[in-house]
Simulated scan of single mutants.
Amino acid sequence: MIISLRRLGRKALACVCALACLVSLAACGSDEEAGKIRIGIKFDQPGLGFKKSGTYVGFDVDVARYVARQLGYSEDQIIWKEAPSKQREAMLQNGDVDMILATYSITDARKNAVSFAGPYFVAGQDLLVRKDDTSINGPEDLNGKRLCSVTGSTSATTVKEKFANEVQLMEQPGYAECATALFSGIVDAVTTDDIILAGLASASRGKLRVVGKPFTQEYYGVGIKKGDKEFARKINAAINGMIEDGAWQRAVTDNTKGTGYKPNAQYNPPKAKEGE
């Protein structure tokens, strides 16, 4: 019995030590993030949110930096976190990030789980095809075609709702995978927002082209924790300031250079007032 109790004692001590280590690590993680802002972005969208050699570039990144600066954070006080489409709501609800700028369309369904500030951009869903493919010139040519979009995106939802009986939809975790499927002939087109497709076309070095016939309006918002109206007001003030001082237009131009892409002037630049 004595040996048994000693063994139990050693096991209990080991458990306590393990727990202490975990608490210590968690505390260290909290200390590292103290006084900083955690921003979710995409890591795989050229022209919008792209991780390149340890740096982060793109239109969403430029907007996020501007907003963070207006909120009082310097560049070295930003912690960038990858925010895949299907994980965005959970990341905000769990407190993993303070805000998300990741081509995050404002929808009523999403507002059941999170809140938004913005919009900071209005895109339109379009199609990306191989440069030499002349069979697809708009959504009217999708009958019998194979499309790729990203799991959890509004683009995938739109295809299911509008073209379910016409197309075969392949869903992938990211747009890089969709572009690879298009290159290899596994799918006939990639569908998502036009500004995302412009970035992919630019990265393809002329091998892919955007059809140029958008068929939706996607209002990009800044995802935040549900109900935080004061935070939404501060973010909206920063976005509107970015538009007024010309930094917004410079960011659009710099990140779509060489693609021929121009935002729809009927909707851009937008007025940020969501979530107040």
Rank of each mutant, 00 (worst) to 15 (best):
V67N: 01
A238N: 01
E89M: 14
D228K: 03
A232S: 14
L13E: 08
Q45K: 13
K11P: 05
V57N: 08
E244A: 15
I39Q: 00
T154Q: 13
S115D: 07
Y261P: 05
A156C: 01
I100M: 02
G72L: 01
C178F: 02
R6I: 04
S115V: 04
G152S: 09
T103Q: 09
R65A: 01
Q217W: 14
C21M: 05
T158P: 12
A14T: 01
D96C: 03
T216M: 09
L182K: 02
F215K: 12
A26R: 07
D254E: 15
D133I: 03
Y219N: 11
R88E: 10
S153K: 12
L182F: 07
A26K: 05
S149V: 00
N240G: 06
A179R: 00
C15K: 10
S115C: 08
G152H: 06
I196E: 09
I37S: 00
A272E: 05
D254H: 12
Y120S: 03
P139G: 14
F50W: 13
F231V: 00
G95Q: 08
N236E: 11
T134A: 09
G212C: 13
K273L: 11
M242H: 04
Y56T: 01
L101F: 06
S30H: 15
I195L: 10
S115T: 07
P46Y: 05
N112A: 11
Y120P: 06
E276C: 13
S30M: 13
Y261T: 04
L200S: 09
L169A: 00
S53I: 12
A164S: 15
A90S: 15
K111C: 15
E161D: 15
I78P: 00
A272C: 07
P269D: 05
E161C: 10
V129H: 07
Y73N: 00
D133K: 05
F59C: 11
S153F: 10
Q217I: 14
T151P: 06
R10H: 10
I2N: 11
T180I: 00
N255D: 02
V122N: 14
D193C: 05
G199C: 14
D193L: 06
D62G: 05
E177L: 00
K225D: 03
